[in-house]
């Protein structure tokens, strides 16, 4: 049973093994790597990437794609900073406002994709240009959150102190609030994917849309739903980015959609849909972080080597997926013959 479980989840097992190997390699080779503050540090640095990648995983599971995640992060980051810092809006209202914006944006893209049968690649590419453009139209420069008092209170204050007030102390360090948000979203996503009808419909849709429709599954709701989830997650990622860096920036998340896709694919999710794991995506993100850390530790290496390493790894995983599929196809063939 155990062996079979491993066999069934080869892509996931492969991802986990690669992650473990990289981790062992780094901890043996670099002093200072295996220290809690450092490890927590790079997980926290990439929390926003992780959140966006989780949302994207749902989209990719249906066989779709969302290129707008990076743009949404940029737009969220700058508009939230703008609302709070310049317009002194209470974050209690500003945050729900941007979240609603994210949901609407995802609904719009999902509807275009589902009802007009437009290719997700192009719809979300257009979406990406739209939100990134809007981000720069709102403000060309980054906005630093400042604790300036205005009429006895600072609207930005609660945002600035978020990570220093909400945290879980751990040994001689602590887990910041933004990282906790990441963990919570991860847990919710795990449950949604595995233990709700919606989650299973996502898998069914990616496995075979035609069959899913004939099975009487709610195709429209599911398909639009995943784009809403993705946009909502990237909006949250934008908020986390702002809280973590205490700075709103229209350029934040530039090119992040590609990192997120890489993380999802390295995490064992098939780009064609139907197969994949939320936990895999988290490990995929972790792998990207570790590679980045290794390159940093090497010091002498140009930091762009990170990209090359990720590229190689991505290629490796795609080849692995191809291999598994080819093998599956072969066994299916022999079944038919007997």
């Amino acid at each position: 049973m155990n062996l079979r479980a491993i066999k069934r989840n080869i892509p996931f097992v492969a991802t986990a093994s690669v992650c473990l190997l990289l981790f062992l390699f780094a901890s043996l080779r670099y002093k200072g790597f295996l220290k809690l503050p450092y490890l927590l540090g790079f997980i926290s640095d990439d929390a926003y990437l992780g959140i966006a990648a989780i949302g994207l995983t749902f989209v990719i599971l249906t066989g779709g794609i969302d290129l707008s995640v990076g743009g949404v992060i940029g737009l969220t980051s700058i508009s939230l900073a703008l609302l709070v810092e310049k317009h002194h809006m209470n974050p209690m209202y500003a945050i729900p406002l941007v979240l609603v914006g994210g949901v609407l944006f995802g609904t719009l893209m999902g509807c275009l994709i589902h009802f007009y049968l437009l290719p997700p690649f192009l719809v979300t590419l257009a979406g990406m240009f739209l939100v990134r453009g809007l981000a720069f139209v709102f403000n060309q420069e980054s906005i630093q959150l400042t604790d300036q008092m205005l009429g006895g209170h600072s609207a930005s204050h609660s945002l600035i102190v978020f990570n220093s007030t909400i945290k879980i102390p751990l040994a001689n360090t602590s887990i910041p609030g933004t990282t906790l948000i990441y963990f919570v979203i991860f847990l919710i996503a795990l449950v949604v994917a595995q233990f709700t009808k919606f989650g299973r419909n996502v898998y069914a849709l990616g496995g075979n849309e035609h069959s899913a429709a004939l099975m009487g599954l709610p195709v429209a709701r599911t398909k639009i739903g995943v784009y809403v989830i993705s946009s909502l997650c990237s909006t949250l990622a934008g908020i986390v980015h702002l809280l973590y860096n205490v700075k709103g920036d229209p350029t934040s998340g530039t090119g992040l959609e590609l990192d997120a896709i890489a993380a999802v694919v390295i995490g064992g999710t098939l780009l064609s849909g139907g197969v994949g794991y939320i936990a895999g995506t988290i490990i995929g993100v972790l792998i990207l972080s570790i590679i980045q850390a290794i390159i940093n530790f090497e010091g002498s290496l140009n930091s762009w080597w990170t990209r090359i390493a990720i590229g190689m790894l991505l290629l490796l995983f795609i080849l692995l997926q191809k291999l598994i599929q080819a093998k599956k196809f072969k066994t299916a063939g022999t079944f038919q013959k007997t």
């Binding site: 009808k197 299973r200 419909n201 898998y203 069914a204 496995g207 075979n208 035609h210 069959s211 899913a212 004939l214 099975m215 009487g216 599954l217 709610p218 139907g274 197969v275």
Partner: peptide
């Protein structure tokens, strides 16, 4: 018309 990657149990009960 089944979902190839999902288990038998899921295919029967899906939805």
């Amino acid at each position: 018309n089944l979902i190839p990657h999902l288990s038998v149990a899921e295919n029967i009960c899906l939805g």
